[in-house]
């Protein structure tokens, strides 16, 4: 598998939870060596798509090809081998609360290799150094800020030098400086690991313009666009224009008045 190019191809992918269909026939490609951003409004199925790519959810229909392999048709051991080539940054880092940062980041190494603890600690320090957290190796996740937890999650995601790095909303909930730092980190990952496929789920337009080489836009469970960033900017599709222009839906009207009787009743209580 060492010479494999780790492209991710989605072919007529249908998926969801229980009987609810969220992904409705997505086609698209997330090429290796590039940062691909999966973009879309809240609840459009971005995170669901990510869970399918990770193999956490099984598609209802269609296929996901990873590195040329039909991911869900592989025998169990092959499926696991490919999964080990993936690193994931979950929305809140998903660090194990009972372990220190060092133990969290070193967990995959401790479980899958026979490396001595000293070597593992050296590797962990290096990875934490890449995300600027080397001094926090013995801290517990609850002693860190949200941004630091995300960076630690990124360090854990890259500890096994994965071929595919998947990040679920890495900048959500971060202040502008931390969000910019996270973007910078992802760009430096691309520089450090040129063959790595980096897939970022996001609805942060600023981040999109900074990091994306390739964009997959999802709208109502389907791929509204798949291609490079420049193509997306020039596209004439009304939804894509609305999304990139941050325009509200014309049917959504803000509620201005509560109604005189309700307002009066509320005012009485507020004055008490």
């Amino acid at each position: 598998m060492s010479t494999t190019t780790w492209d991710i191809d989605l072919q007529d992918l249908w998926g969801g939870y229980n009987n609810t269909k969220i992904l409705k026939g997505i086609n698209g490609s997330l090429p290796a060596g590039k940062i691909s951003v999966i973009l879309g409004g809240s609840g459009c199925g971005k995170s669901t798509l990510l869970r399918h790519i990770l193999g956490l959810n099984h598609p209802m229909q269609g296929k996901i090809h990873i590195g040329g392999h039909d991911f869900f048709s592989l025998p169990k051991d092959q499926f696991r081998k490919i999964r080990r080539r993936m690193g994931v940054l979950f929305q809140d880092g998903a660090l194990l609360g009972s372990l220190t940062l060092g133990e969290n980041v070193g967990l995959p190494l401790a479980e899958h290799t026979k490396l001595p603890p000293k070597t593992i600690r050296t590797i962990v320090l290096h990875k934490l150094g890449l995300v600027g957290l080397a001094d926090y190796i013995d801290y517990y996740p609850n002693e860190l800020s949200g941004g630091m937890r995300k960076r630690a999650g990124l360090a854990r995601a890259i500890v096994m030098d994965p071929e595919i790095l998947l990040c679920d909303e890495p900048t959500s909930g971060l202040d502008p400086i931390n969000a910019a730092e996270m973007d910078q980190l992802l760009l430096s990952m691309k520089e450090h690991f040129p063959s790595m496929s980096i897939v970022v789920v996001s609805h942060d337009l600023e981040s999109l313009y900074k990091i994306a080489d390739n964009v997959l836009v999802i709208h109502e469970g389907q791929a509204a666009y798949c291609g490079d960033l420049e193509g997306l900017k020039k596209h004439n599709d009304p939804y894509l224009k609305q999304l990139l222009g941050r325009q509200p839906n014309s049917t959504t009207q803000p509620v201005i008045s509560l109604g005189a009787d309700v307002q009066e009743e509320l005012s009485k209580w507020l004055k008490k």
Binding site: L54, L56, R83, L95, L96, P108, E111
Partner: peptide, 20 residues
Amino acid sequence: AEIGVMRISDQIDALDVMDI
């Protein structure tokens, strides 16, 4: 409680994805 919190905060999914 500990395993439940791990379940709702994606920690169990994270283990699964790390092939643990």
